[in-house]
Design a binder for these strands. Structure first.
Lengths: 268, 268
DNA sequence: CGTAAGATTGAGTCCGATCAAGGCGAGTGG
DNA sequence: CCACTCGCCTTGATCGGACTCAATCTTACG
């Protein structure tokens, strides 16, 4: 058992003991300044987030100072829906899956990449989380106490304005997702997702999956089996599957099939 | 042809001539003070909206003063998706359907009752509408210029805070709708919708549809035919259909089938 | 090299959509 | 007052898409 694995295991145990989490995390947070744990470029990336970019220097400093920077191994559940929103989360490194359940069914709601935040709405209204979150790979997460975020809201107008903008963005993204689900078939959702992921290129685009296909299938609202079939169905439309790598050889053909719209797939 | 109908018809023509709308509406707005056109209880209801309740008196007055109060006949398209967001809308009376399209498909996104607002997010970020809106019945609508809303955002902290809360609410409602769509079957969505509409009662609840069933079917993400079948499928679970009136005779049974959750069906 | 987990493929079933026909009700005109 | 008509709702039959179950293949990793 390697030391690396030991560390991961220890982190993991913190999460299995909810009562002890806060002390454990807090002690880590207080013993080592956030800035010391973070690579400078990561700190700069957080500062450059739309949510923080226009905030006053002292607002930002206070939020980060009060936050806990923590590393997690893959597969760790960070939050559970129906729990009160204690922290605003910032993904500094790695991948986080937001998912939701109802009865015994579960679906992936979104994938958060660095540098992105999640569950801002629950934090602001001091409500329970509507979604759960788990790490998909080794991740570095900044957790900012909800109380601090709400405080900053009252003291820094520029930050408040950024929160409004970010909330409105999230709102609109969610509306688009409803449209995506209600107006499209599975194969169309997949085609549009691929086009959105693809690095723009004149000739051909390549999409490299950073997570399992079963996660993608759930994100798109279908079963893993169906995703396989949907991918096959896209072959006649210029798509080539090479394991976790997907080539879009004929972008025009895929666009014709996908029929994307900025009112559904738009970046914001 | 009655005078009443004439007036409706004239209103309608304004909407068919987009270039002339603004002048027409503006002239109405300036010739008659809003307060004169509105019943006092309606004005009070608007003031009592979560969005306006905590706003300063002068902020509210300015927003309403700059707004246009307009009556519309049923079936009038108020806004079209992809158009720039020029107004924040408040439904004072009647019913408004928000819907969205993609290609030749269309789906109902939500129904707005008095007193409610719609498309706040687009207004705040100065973006295009993601949804279209049409009246389902004779309606009275207050249209507040987007510019005024954004101005108020910078001058009235209490209003800003209300906007944050309202946005977060809308965001969470949209997330819930995604969960509703991805995690439930059509019949389950129907059952939960009925329970949500039903006036709480110890014995039996009654739901009276205020709009066509085809609209409801679209709202729930199914075809009209399927809604009929889904309603029939709920009969063994204590539901009786009497045309546009639906009785829930056995609430316990329907609850057992619907399996509602505050994280999907909650009021906020 | 062996195991385990994920991905794919096939077969059967279910849910929902489409197409087509008939019933009901409101509004219209004779 | 009554037939007519036009939507809307319903019902049935058929079709297609998506899910389930099961088996096989691939891959990652010990």
């Amino acid at each position: 058992m390697s030391l690396d694995y030991m560390i991961q295991y220890l982190d993991f145990t913190y999460l299995l003991l909810p009562i002890d989490i806060y002390q454990a995390v807090a002690s880590i947070g207080s013993s080592a300044p956030i800035e010391a744990c973070m690579r400078p470029e990561d700190a700069a990336a957080i500062r450059d987030l739309l949510l923080f970019r226009d905030a006053r220097e002292d607002t930002f400093a206070e939020l980060v100072r009060a936050g806990f920077l923590q590393r997690f191994p893959p597969g760790v559940t960070l939050i559970n829906e129906s729990e009160p929103a204690d922290f605003l989360y910032v993904v500094v490194e790695g991948l986080v899956e937001l998912f939701a359940t109802s009865g015994d069914r579960e679906t992936t709601m979104s994938i958060v990449e660095p540098v992105g935040t999640f569950i801002l709405a629950a934090v602001l209204n001091d409500q329970v989380y509507l979604q759960s979150a788990r790490t998909l790979e080794k991740a570095q997460i900044l957790m900012i106490p909800a109380e601090k975020v709400r405080e900053a809201l009252g003291t820094d107008p520029a930050f408040t304005h950024a929160v409004v903008t970010e909330l409105a963005r999230g709102y609109r993204r969610a509306i688009k997702e409803v449209k995506n689900q209600k107006l499209r078939t599975g194969a169309e959702r997949l085609a549009n997702w691929l086009l959105r992921q693809a690095v723009p290129s004149d000739t051909e685009a390549r999409v490299r999956l950073r997570f399992e296909k079963r996660v993608l299938s759930s994100l798109l609202g279908m079963t893993p089996e169906n995703l396989s079939r949907a991918l096959s169905a896209l072959k006649p439309h210029g798509v080539v599957i090479l394991g976790p790598e997907i080539l879009i050889q004929d972008q025009a053909a895929l666009l014709r099939f996908a029929n994307p719209s900025p009112l559904v797939d738009g970046p914001e």
